[in-house]
Write a protein that binds this DNA or RNA. Structure first.
Lengths: 216, 216
DNA sequence: TCGGCGAAACGAAACGGCCCGTTTCGTGCG
DNA sequence: CGCACGAAACGGGCCGTTTCGTTTCGCCGA
């Protein structure tokens, strides 16, 4: 990960469970006081630990955040044999995971931190790249089934779906119901014209009418 | 907006251009030092102004940020008569606007700030709600043209497109070329099965049946 | 028309408070 | 002994507020 390089290095004699206590405290502080109240000093106070101890194990606030986030393991998403169900299930469980554990707050904080710390941004970029690849596998499986065309950009589809999740996390809209999630995924997979109920002539008419009404 | 309530109130005698100088300084500090270097004291130093002057006019750092952002007017997007072109043009000009002015840095900072300040989050939510409505108008126009079904959720489409823009801003990926933007918009409008030659039977097999679509 | 007065906004400086990241010191344990 | 630890304190920065003396106008009476 690159954010906690020297951790558990060879020379380290011991680390009883103070590290775990610190991670516990960090999570608690983050949940109770929010990102604005999340400081190394606050974590140290809560863990009854010294600041130098924290700095010995984590080089930055973000590294600590990242470790806290990764402690909360995420459920792996089953292969339903159908891309839409795969993606809806993914969003559903991700939303509830973010809502019902402290993961949501922590990940929000990580994204915020990345906006003011380039090294965090780099780590976050690498992490999300991996996540996108993972989500993209759902599309790849659909390709293998012949469900979608082989030239579909799986990463881009993952990007669209993950982007939807990110902004809903960042703007306190994790309460979207399954119908909305399914509709959103449906748009990406089948488009908004999917059932062909639209008069093609009208569409063609609309496309030709390009002139005029510029400034809006 | 609610973030700068007393500004230019009746009793205010004058505000020569110190306010503008402060906004200029704020923008400059943000561009040169980034969000992490953006502090009221730094802005005051740069503007050769006193901190109380800044606090007299803006109640918080975020309010100042918001004013700086709104000073940079955005081009209104022309009606091309075609939804795909409307949305691609929207993304293209938004990306270049974020890339080539300081708007990108500022908006990133606003989003980050919203993660630790609830009042900022509320203002940002209202702002983006309005932006979504604006983007949704493109879909509504397409409905009026008969280009898309009348029961399409215009806000949700706007949400998908804007989410894509947000995450690309937040993860330093504003360099997407027009092909990628067009492909992303194409997925949302026409689905991922539209751009390739795929066996329709296989598609239908994988697809869930859509029932009861109401036509306009 | 003009001069002066006072209110309001200003720049500068300093306040207590919090947090940063680091250093020092005494303790406990292998 | 050697090392990790908790605790305390370091200088530095920014927070939001207060105080102080100055400047800039609007108002009003001469």
């Amino acid at each position: 990960m690159g954010l906690d390089p020297g951790r558990r290095s060879i020379g380290a004699r011991r680390n009883p469970d103070s590290a775990d206590a610190i991670l516990d405290a960090a999570e608690a502080v983050l949940v109770e006081a929010g990102y604005s109240g999340f400081s190394i000093e606050a974590v140290a106070r809560r863990a009854r630990a010294g600041k130098p101890t924290i700095y010995r194990w984590w080089p930055s606030k973000a590294a600590l955040l990242f470790d806290v986030y990764q402690r909360l393991k995420r459920v792996d998403h089953p292969d339903t044999g159908n891309l839409e169900d795969d993606l809806v299930g993914f969003l559903k469980s991700l939303f509830s995971h973010w809502r019902e554990t402290s993961s949501g707050s922590i990940f929000r904080s990580l994204i915020a931190e990345a906006q003011s710390d380039a090294t965090v941004a780099a780590v976050l970029a690498e992490y999300t790249k991996g996540r996108h690849a993972h989500t993209g596998q759902m599309v790849e499986r659909a390709k293998a089934r012949g469900e979608v065309a082989a030239d579909v950009d799986a990463t881009l589809v993952a990007d669209l779906v993950a982007s939807f999740a990110w902004t809903h996390l960042l703007t306190n809209r994790l309460d979207a119901d399954e119908t909305t999630l399914r509709r959103a995924v449906g748009y990406v997979l089948k488009g908004i014209e999917a059932d062909g109920s639209v008069d093609p002539a009208a569409v063609r008419r609309g496309r030709r009418r390009v002139i005029g009404r510029v400034t809006g």
